[in-house]
């Protein structure tokens, strides 16, 4: 296993989660005010899931080197 590669990928995924977490808070506030439809929150969750899937596949590579 390539520990440094795995660490780097986890760090990137962590940064991604931080960015999305911040944006999710903004979106949740807009949703609470009635400015943002449910679809907006739903698409944000799907977008995050999609990005995490890509990072998950990348994480597999750390076990192949």
């Amino acid at each position: 296993m390539n520990a440094s590669a795995l660490l780097a990928i986890v760090a990137f995924a962590g940064a991604l989660l931080l960015v999305f977490g911040y944006l999710y808070r903004i979106a949740a506030k807009s949703h609470a005010k009635g400015e943002l439809a449910d679809e907006g929150i739903r698409i944000l969750r799907w977008a995050l899931l999609g990005q995490l899937v890509i990072f998950l596949i990348l994480a597999i590579t750390a076990f192949l080197t």
Partner: peptide, 14 residues
């Protein structure tokens, strides 16, 4: 990435 998400969120508004 944050700009892309913010564009989505803005588009999703009424």
């Amino acid at each position: 990435l944050p700009n892309g998400v913010r564009i989505f969120l803005e588009l999703a508004k009424a």
